[in-house]
């Protein structure tokens, strides 16, 4: 924030003029955002307050107040989906952060071969989720799966395990596939953060007799906190929209063990054609995601200012 000390008038009005010009240039982009993001969100929220019936002549809206939301809260499917998605986001992001940090630290210290390894790491991240989910489906297959074949070969297990056939195992397997895919993204973000930590500060700390452990906890970690927050924010938002991985890998099963909010929303809206409750599912996620995002931005801004000061 560099505005505070610029208070003399001519500069201010010039700045304002510039801002107005800027706004004009931004207008087309803003309009697109308005059309494809803001409008659908507001419309969905409106839909969520209605009972919607579909006829040959289109949709009919009947105001239903909080009826759809009461329906959601009374549904064990919705409550489970919320808990599952929250736990899923928490666990995967935490694991990705720890593994990502470890990977980033190793990458930073690599004397040679770093570009090659970076490219390799990006491979899972660049794969389309639907494709990698299909691939994991083959790996986890309970009869012909590669994972079972390897474990059997080495005598670690004695009969094939159906990885996606038990609730807890299926959840863990889905989480593993997610970590495999997105950990590199976190690692690369963190690596960028690590690269920005001034070398002289670390050298000075070492000269003062600080151990590696101390340097990491007291110097490196605080300095890359903004990068970390950003990585966490990205990942939490993505984890909350969890759809393609369980949709392809487990179809939400076994039972409803891996049914995320987005999978449930898809089912209610596009399979059951229950547009009111479906919109309420979607809106409720939007609200939760917005709250998380705003909370993070707030914390992040605090940290950034702290970092600058």
């Amino acid at each position: 924030m560099t505005i505070n000390h610029l208070t003399d008038r001519p500069k201010f009005s010039m700045q304002r003029r510039r801002a107005v010009t800027g706004l004009w240039f931004m207008a087309p982009g803003l309009l697109v955002v308005l059309a494809v993001t803001i409008f659908p969100i507001l419309y969905s929220i409106y839909m969520g307050f209605n009972t919607i019936s579909l006829t040959t002549h289109g949709f009919h809206f009947h105001w239903n107040g909080l009826g759809n939301y009461r329906l959601l809260l009374s549904s064990s499917l919705f409550r489970y989906a919320i808990v599952f998605t929250l736990v899923y986001a928490l666990v995967t992001v935490l694991v990705e952060l720890v593994l990502g940090m470890m990977t980033a630290l190793v990458l930073q210290r690599m004397a040679w071969g770093r570009p090659a390894l970076l490219a390799l790491l990006l491979l899972p991240w660049s794969l389309i989720t639907v494709i990698s989910a299909e691939m994991w489906g083959y790996i986890y297959n309970g009869v012909y799966g590669a994972l079972d074949a390897i474990l059997l070969e080495f005598g670690i297990i004695h009969k094939p395990i159906v990885w996606l056939g038990f609730a807890k195992l299926a959840i863990a397997s889905t989480m593993f596939a997610d970590v495999w895919k997105t950990m590199p993204f976190v690692a690369i973000l963190l690596l960028a953060g690590l690269e920005m930590v001034p070398v002289d500060v670390i050298e000075a700390a070492h000269m003062d007799g600080a151990s590696n452990w101390h340097v990491f906890w007291r110097i490196i970690l605080p300095l890359i906190r903004p990068t970390m927050s950003l990585a966490i924010l990205f990942r939490v938002l993505q984890a909350f929209g969890l759809f393609d991985l369980p949709f392809v890998l487990t179809g939400g099963g076994p039972g409803t063990a891996t049914e995320s909010i987005a999978v449930l929303g898809y089912q209610v809206m596009f399979q059951d054609l229950n547009f009111g409750p479906g919109a309420a599912v979607a809106s409720s996620t939007t609200v939760v995601v917005l709250i998380i995002a705003l909370a993070f931005l707030w914390v992040f801004r605090g940290m950034a200012e702290e970092g600058v000061a």
Partner: peptide, 22 residues
């Protein structure tokens, strides 16, 4: 509302699902 609703539902789900395939 013949059209808007569909764009809307699909759009919002695309957002929460990170543009899923479904």
């Amino acid at each position: 509302k013949p059209i808007g609703i569909v764009v809307c539902g699909a759009g919002l789900l695309a957002i929460i699902s990170g543009c899923g395939p479904g």
